[in-house]
Amino acid sequence: MSLASYWYAFSGILKRESLRFIHQRSRFFSSLVRPLLWLAVFAAGFRAALGISIIEPYDTYITYEVYIVPGLVAMILLFNAMQSSLSMVYDREMGSMRVLLMSPLPRWYLLLSKLVASTLVAIPQVYAFLAIAWLFDVEVPQVGLLWVAPAVILTGVLLGAIGLFISSFIRQLENFAGVMNFVIFPMFFMSSALYPLWKMQESSEWLYWLCRMNPFSFCVELIRHALYGKLNADALLVVSGCLVVFTLLAVLTFNPERGQIGKPNQR
């Protein structure tokens, strides 16, 4: 297969993901409602309780709303990744995954293309959220709006790979929500998305270390720094490393024999 074939395949997958997203308008709005609720309600309630000292990448004291916006951007990506994993389990159950897998291109390329395409679909959601956050006086420097794009793509693909890896072990669609609850909530709450980790350390040392080791914390910090035109090298290194590891794991453990087409009684 020529290089052009690889491009056509990726463009086809991206087009399909975009069309499916456009057809599910409610998905766009619900993806915004969730972080906006946190920003408008949760942040208002906790603003007084949680004082934020001057921490990187901020140059001065900030409001709690400003602090949680990067975490909420990561939250959009987290839910988008899980939605994408759900759609892959659904496709596997319903059989439409077979169309993708019967392409003569390598399977790793097809799966990676799907992960990247799902992430690119999330980018308008991120920018729409940042635009609304601006109405809440959370102003991001213009340079940050550019820098955040690669951070969002890296984070989105990593979270998508984690979702795909986990979905490899889900035999039935019905089990998906239950399993994901054990992934999404610990991942989100045990991170620096809602509170700086030094605050967690004041409460519990071991919990602090759990949060510190959570790849999602590094995703949040990568996005936080990128939004202010700065690079967090540690976060970039960890996110990139995890991306490689989880993509490999997702591809290696991917097994179309699971689900509908793998049930002997269906033969």
Binding site: M1, Y6, A9, R20, M94, L100
Partner: peptide
């Protein structure tokens, strides 16, 4: 090989043309 599965694998919410176009892309057609 081309395959027609027992269970339909068409994307119901896409048009006929979009379904075919997706397949053509996956097979590297310009």
């Amino acid at each position: 090989i081309g395959m027609v599965f027992q269970q339909s694998t068409l994307d119901l919410d896409l048009s006929v043309e979009q379904n075919l176009d997706y397949h053509g892309c996956l097979h590297g057609l310009s």
